[in-house]
Simulated assay, not measured.
Amino acid sequence: MSRRVRKAVFPVAGMGTRFLPATKTMAKEMLPVVDKPLIQYAVEEASAAGIDHFIFVTGRGKSVLLDHFDHMPELEALLKERGNFTVLDNLLGAKPPPGKVFSTRQQQPLGLGHAVWCARAFVGDEPFAVLLPDDLVLSETPCIKQLLDVHEKVGGNVVAVEDVPRERTNKYGILDVVEDDGTLARARGLVEKPAPNVAPSTMAIIGRYVLEPGIFAQLESVPRGAGGEIQLTDAMNAMIDSVSFHGLRYEGRRYDCGDKVGFLQANIAFALARDDMRDPVRAMLSEYTQQGS
């Protein structure tokens, strides 16, 4: 049985250029889906999966992410004075316990692999999770919990995957699969953003990982890959001979909130999933659909 995963890394140093000008002075992870920022969804997903240490790999201008999970005495006092206890409870409930949030800086934009490597001192010698807040997953069971359950059984590195159209393989890390039961696939390799005509499969990695600590040694030595960045996929690939590698077709639907259309889709889907918003949102959508016709 694999060791329990207690820590999650959130690579949040990106500048969010696809959402300019909105992200000129605001961290992209603070963009709201309905009424919660993306980073809160990611932290809540990890917490619901049993993670109890949260490691933020940040950059300049990202201190607001840490502030979001801290006390704000003036606002809390105002809500209490006005009797808005439900809102206050929700606000306080989003805050991890003291001593559970850690932060480090990724001082150069050298890619996801480098961001994960920056968290090595906090992770130590134990398996850990990685969550990319841009990928928001609506599911019955938290996506990262699904991966943790698989990791407990098979160990090694486990990633969330979904099948993508072949013409889009050049946008993802793609698995080279040796066994596949329709839910869990074992890979013998992976390729970062391969051209469609040479992609080994259409099984693409999304922003959820459970990794063994040996990944840090690989990230130390792996050469820069696609885009001149240190690629996490290259480091995982270098481990395959010694550490098993599996891709899980997770239950749920992913919304790419780094894309404007995906972000709009996420807002609609998460609003429709809420009892307090479902009916008025359906009415609004019906109105716009009728106008469009």
Rank of each mutant, 00 (worst) to 15 (best):
V137M: 00
F102M: 11
K171D: 11
L88N: 03
S242R: 15
M30R: 13
V281H: 04
M30S: 13
I268P: 07
L110F: 12
V130D: 01
E44T: 12
D181H: 05
P142F: 07
A195Q: 11
D35M: 05
P11E: 02
L110P: 00
S293N: 14
V9C: 05
F10V: 09
V177P: 07
E44K: 08
I51R: 04
D180W: 00
E251K: 09
K24P: 04
F10K: 04
A48E: 12
M284K: 09
A204V: 06
A235Q: 07
L91G: 00
V12P: 04
Q218G: 03
Q290V: 06
F122A: 10
L65H: 10
D176W: 02
F69E: 14
D149T: 08
P37W: 10
L88R: 05
Y41H: 14
E192S: 02
A199I: 02
I144V: 14
A77P: 00
R82V: 04
G173E: 09
L88E: 03
E220M: 13
R4P: 06
R3S: 15
E44S: 13
G59Q: 05
L264C: 14
P127F: 09
E29Y: 13
M203G: 01
H114A: 15
Q265F: 11
Q146F: 02
L175R: 02
A160I: 00
K153R: 15
A22V: 15
V116M: 03
M26I: 15
L147Y: 02
R278D: 08
R282P: 02
V243G: 09
E126V: 08
D279L: 14
L110N: 11
F128E: 11
P96D: 08
G16V: 12
E212H: 14
S139W: 07
T289Y: 13
D35W: 05
T141Y: 01
K153I: 11
D134Q: 12
P96Q: 08
V150P: 02
K7Y: 04
A185L: 11
L112M: 06
K260I: 15
M277Y: 04
N90Y: 01
V191M: 14
K100L: 04
N267R: 14
A22I: 14
P109H: 12
V57Q: 12
K7M: 08
I51M: 04
R3N: 13
P142R: 06
F263P: 14
A238H: 07
G258E: 15
R6P: 00
M284C: 09
Q218R: 15
I51K: 05
R249H: 13
R168W: 01
T17M: 03
R186D: 02
A283H: 09
Q107L: 14
L88S: 08
G14R: 09
M1D: 03
M72I: 11
V161L: 00
H151R: 01
E76D: 11
N157S: 12
G173R: 10
V123T: 12
A283W: 04
P98D: 11
P280E: 07
T23M: 07
A271R: 05
A129V: 00
N267W: 09
F216E: 01
Q265I: 05
F10S: 07
R254H: 02
D149H: 03
G124E: 10
D67W: 10
